[in-house]
Design a protein around this nucleic acid. Structure first.
Lengths: 195, 195, 195, 195
DNA sequence: CATGAATGAGAGTTCATTCAT
DNA sequence: GATGAATGAACTCTCATTCAT
């Protein structure tokens, strides 16, 4: 391919992202992306061979950015409870935002590609989430903020709940109230003397 | 449509179910179903207009059957903890069975049809699950088996976790050990003096 | 495929034959054939998957017919020299007829498919030709019409010459005079006391 | 075109030749040649407008070189039979060498271009071959080596046979034994008291 | 001279859907 | 009711050719 214009490639990725957000993965054709980008048919093939490849590159970008956001916040904040709250608030925001949301595209893609890169993406993110939460809970225990007999179990529980909420949000919708109630339930299970 | 042969319609639904299990929803074409059923193209259209309609009718059948199974077990069993354990065991079995599993087809369908029948199906099942679990937990509290300050929160938590596990099972796989650990975590949170 | 309409299949083969005669093999697209047949794009795919398959089926038809013509004439005629003359006359006619001629298509096809069915078609025809000619020459020798020390060599020589003429006819044209001269040369080499 | 770099043009011709040898004529695209040459798309168009033009220029080169080889040998050798044998040996070598062989490309090209330059190339080579052979045979007759009542017919016969063998070699393969047998047959027809 | 990104026409192929039998 | 041939829209992908740099 050569490098072509990095800018144009980025432009295609950004534009295609919107298409995936709007239509999921399986409904998106190369033609859709060509039209959204207002480039020629052949032009798109200069940069990408398939919708699959495009989505994967978008996800790589996202992963990068997410990591950055993560670390920023963690380093800036104070108590474990604060960080956890912030983390959950972030997740809540993502959950509830209908638009700008690749969830459906990602699930559709990974439904159809269980065997290949699966481990590399969704699982890694899930596992990373568990690890972060576990450390956070342990830190909270150490500082006397949290009480928890099974930090890893609690961390995994939170990740499953978030996953479950995410899928519900996309299939039958979820209200802010429902999310808040469940997040409150989780925090109550952790925090000592929570009222 | 007239009445046509109820048997043939049922035959088509049963056969199409296997196709959806194997290929999800979006990958299934009317042609696929025609071929699986070994009937004529026109013949299928006599009974159904689209893959969508076929899947919905399959899901209606399923819902019926699931309800039956539910109530059977509940009426037969004894303590709340036993029933809950049984319920979770059932869910675990479903989670881990790769085959005979419509999960992917259902999610794919509802991703693409948020607005329409969503409330009627997935949400109803989710809400029904929460209600059953809540009652179970309250019964357990009454009998002294369980301790829980927020039965509804706990019930909802369990349903989200199951949902999260289900999706993970389909996207990057999940092991029996992982399921067991999380179910254990949940039971420990409920049962008084659990060891 | 089922059998569909045998008539329509035959119609497609007949129509496609004209296209191959006109344009050779590599220049013919499925679209060309669709248009020549005045059927729908999908309609053609109901019967054939590729131009290759179509050409091969045409050639099978031809082979059949050619065999028939061959045997007819041989059984009807008298002396070896007469039969040989008739055979060569037939070949000459084919050589010179620009139209209704699949030669180019056949060569183009077999240039691109050396390994596969080659033996089954061109070689078989060539070998069959050699065999027929050899027997003819031997019969001529027995009857005192011909003189030849190496009937097989002579037969092979004739077939190579015909092949060479055929290719020349298609690449830079050949005149009737040129063909006649060479056929005369061949007959003179065989016939005793030829003037 | 201006003069550009003669070296680069020659480089392109040499590289393109390999491509034609490998893929024939109709399968070769400008893209193929660009990639084989590792030059830019636009760069190729600076020198050539089409694959057709490239092949023609390659053939012009070849023609030149072939002539040279021809005359060399003829001038160096002694008896007519020796020269003829040498000539046939040379042809045999070409026939049997699968690689480094433009035959298919040339035929494919001239199949598609009957009307244009045909006379200028293939026919000229064929006619030249006939003329050389005829003179050779006449020389052989004069020296008492050969016996032949129709030198031109014999010369033409040989050229047709070579042409026929060439095409067979490319379509269904030909063995060295088959070539030897036919060449032997030809020599036996010419040489006086050949055993 | 040379590059290579960009365009757009066109070929292959698949299916939902219809309709005469 | 049932069949399956037929249609045509829609998609994927590839190249010849151009043109700004």
């Amino acid at each position: 391919m050569g490098e072509k214009s990095v800018q144009k490639k980025q432009y295609i990725l950004d534009t295609a992202r919107k298409v995936f957000v709007e239509k999921g993965f399986k409904n998106v054709t190369m033609k859709d992306i060509v039209e959204a980008c207002e480039i020629s048919r052949g032009g798109l093939y200069l940069y990408f061979d398939s919708t699959e490849q495009i989505l994967l590159e978008i996800l790589q970008m996202e992963a990068q950015e997410t990591d950055d956001v993560f670390t920023e916040h963690i380093s800036e904040e104070d108590t474990a409870a604060d960080i956890l709250t912030l983390f959950l608030k972030e997740q809540k925001k993502e959950l509830l935002q209908k638009k700008n949301n690749l969830t459906v595209a990602v699930y559709e893609y990974f439904f159809a590609h269980e065997s290949t890169d699966k481990n590399n993406m969704l699982r890694r993110q899930f596992d990373a989430g568990v690890r972060v939460l576990e450390k956070l809970i342990q830190a909270g225990i150490a500082s006397g903020e949290f009480y928890c007999e099974d930090p890893k179990g609690a961390a995994t529980n939170i990740m499953y709940v978030l996953e479950g909420m995410k899928i519900n949000a996309q299939t039958f919708g979820i209200t802010e109230k429902m999310v808040d109630e469940q997040l409150l339930y989780i925090m109550q299970g952790l925090i000592v003397e929570f009222d």
